[in-house]
Amino acid sequence: MKYAFFPGCTMAYRLPFVEKSIRLVAPHFNIELVDLPFTCCPEPNSVRSFSDETWLALAARNLALAEKSKLDVLTACTGCHESFMTAKHELDTHPDRKDAVNEVLGEIGMEYTGVSAVKHMHQVLFDDIGPEAIAEKVKRPLELRVVTHSGCHMLRPEAILQIDDCEAPVKFDGLVEVLGIEPLEYMDKTMCCGTGTRRANREASFAILREKMTSMKMVNPDAAVVFCPSCFISFESGQRIVNKTFGTDFKLPVYYYTELLAVALEIPGMVPIIKAHRVKGPVTASAPGVPGEGRPVEAKN
């Protein structure tokens, strides 16, 4: 399947190693990624807050670009995904807004019609490929205990996204399970990581992260697994600030799902990717192995 790939600004420029893991994994599932000259999705919490019209028009421009290439869009960031899906819903259900947007797009020689679908990597892996097909490809079960964090915009608005049950999601846990990983149930599983208010209310945003990570820590996981680059940064870098601010002692490794998938499939090229992590975890290039297992999970390069 061929997609217009939309890594999003955060992944492309702040977590390029995570983007690399997606590009390494894709061919193993017959996913072809096409790069197009996209703008920022645009980020809903900032750009839409600034101007609803600008947000809608820029999102429509990106979707129109994919339409031109007759491709569906594959997103890797839940923020971008929510932005596109919400914009698409707005455009497809409000003909007046669609007309107004197309007047703007007409000025740059583009038109939004709504034919391109938008899918998040999570959906392609679970709904299209399926956990069973992934399980068949696993060469090295990872035998970790993790907490999954879907991220707000993977789940909500539920009626528009329709990815999983927003209060009790199960699909992400299913995806980690087939890698030999035990997903742990924990309190506040669907709670926000705090990123959304970091710019406006820094103190509250890190207090939210403290609450979230306190709940995660209660089940003593080896790592947290995410499907969003913003949540990734929030947990990985944010925990140091939380520790400094609140005197906590979090040291939780964070992985984006496709990183673990690539290691479990023994896809070469993962050493520099795992090395790029700031909080070193049980899945490392030169690691002694998975805690309690004594079994190396070192990625072959």
Partner: peptide, 12 residues
């Protein structure tokens, strides 16, 4: 209003 994290749980 700017403190809203846009997590959408309220509306859910």
């Amino acid at each position: 209003e700017w403190s809203c994290a846009y997590c959408l749980m309220c509306e859910q």
